[in-house]
Amino acid sequence: MLRTEDLGYWYQSKDQPLFQQVNLEFEEGQSYAILGHSGTGKTTFLSLIAGLDKPREGDIFLNDRSLKKIGLTNFRRHDVAIVFQAYNLFTYMSPLDNLLTAMAITGATHAGDKGYAQRILNDLGIGDDLITRNVQRLSGGQQQRVAIARTMCCDARLVVADEPTGNLDEDNTRAVIDQFQQIAHAQKKCVIIVTHEPDVAEQCDHQYRLENKQFVRLG
């Protein structure tokens, strides 16, 4: 589904890259973890595969089409769903309105279908008593589930998540990873999670560690 070809990125000098010549493949129906310490470049890598930034060298392909040809704006709108550590929900909206807005913006198949959005939220433990409540009145774990529900209600086949469990306790962490696995296996989407937590990475189907400017496959 998604692959990188000789991907490289640096800030000031090519002689000091975060990573270079990265060649990885990611498939639908699978979950992937990218491990690494702070500052190694794992979040930058996520920004590249999410179309939030451009690589310094190399290319990224979605179903053999270069993101350069697809266009980053089109790619972000239709092909990728992003779960941020800070959730990035519309804080003045309810969970239901967050999902409906996301479906409208992306032109999703179920755009405008309140029942569909409600069922997704309910399945993730956001009950009817919460779906119309302002998201700022929800707990951190609940807000993260709303952010995940937003990826499920849109048509994007690629889901990327930046430290999605960084603000959660152990029980919520386990629940969130289970939900990502459901997205990958039941919805047949490609899920890529950036994390610094080995326990989180071990629950994914595939693990890579970014170290010494290269991605090393684990397991």
Rank of each mutant, 00 (worst) to 15 (best):
L2P: 12
D6W: 09
W10R: 12
W10G: 14
K14P: 06
D15V: 00
D15I: 05
P17S: 12
P17L: 13
P17Q: 01
L18S: 04
L18Q: 13
F19N: 06
N23V: 13
N23T: 04
L24C: 07
E25D: 10
E25H: 14
F26G: 04
E27F: 11
E27N: 12
G29C: 10
G29L: 06
Q30V: 10
S31T: 03
A33I: 00
G36C: 10
S38W: 04
S38G: 05
T40S: 15
T40F: 10
G41Y: 07
L48S: 09
L48N: 06
A50P: 01
A50I: 09
A50D: 01
G51E: 08
D53S: 10
K54W: 13
R56H: 04
R56A: 01
E57N: 11
G58K: 06
L62P: 03
R65H: 15
R65E: 14
S66K: 08
L67E: 02
K69M: 13
K69T: 14
I70K: 10
G71F: 06
G71D: 11
L72E: 03
F75W: 08
R77G: 08
H78K: 09
H78G: 02
D79K: 02
I82N: 01
I82E: 05
V83G: 07
V83W: 04
Q85V: 14
A86L: 12
Y92C: 04
M93Y: 08
S94A: 07
L96E: 14
D97S: 13
N98Q: 02
N98T: 11
T101C: 10
T106A: 14
H110F: 02
A111L: 09
K114N: 13
Y116V: 02
Y116L: 06
R119T: 15
I120A: 02
L121N: 12
N122F: 10
D123W: 01
D123E: 09
G125Q: 05
I126C: 03
G127A: 13
D128E: 15
D129K: 15
L130M: 15
V135I: 08
R137C: 03
L138P: 10
L138G: 06
S139T: 09
S139R: 12
Q143W: 03
Q144I: 05
Q144W: 06
A147C: 07
A149R: 01
C153V: 15
C153E: 04
C154E: 00
D155Q: 08
A156G: 01
A156K: 03
R157W: 06
L158F: 01
V160E: 02
A161L: 03
E163V: 01
T165V: 06
G166Q: 04
N167V: 00
D169A: 00
E170I: 12
N172F: 06
T173L: 08
T173H: 00
A175K: 14
V176P: 04
F180T: 00
Q181A: 08
I183Y: 01
A184Y: 02
H185K: 09
H185D: 09
Q187H: 05
K189D: 02
K189G: 00
K189I: 03
C190T: 13
C190Q: 02
C190A: 04
E197Y: 02
P198A: 12
D199G: 01
V200E: 11
A201H: 12
E202I: 07
C204R: 01
D205T: 13
D205L: 02
E211F: 06
K213T: 15
F215N: 07
F215R: 08
F215A: 08
V216Q: 15
V216S: 09
L218N: 08
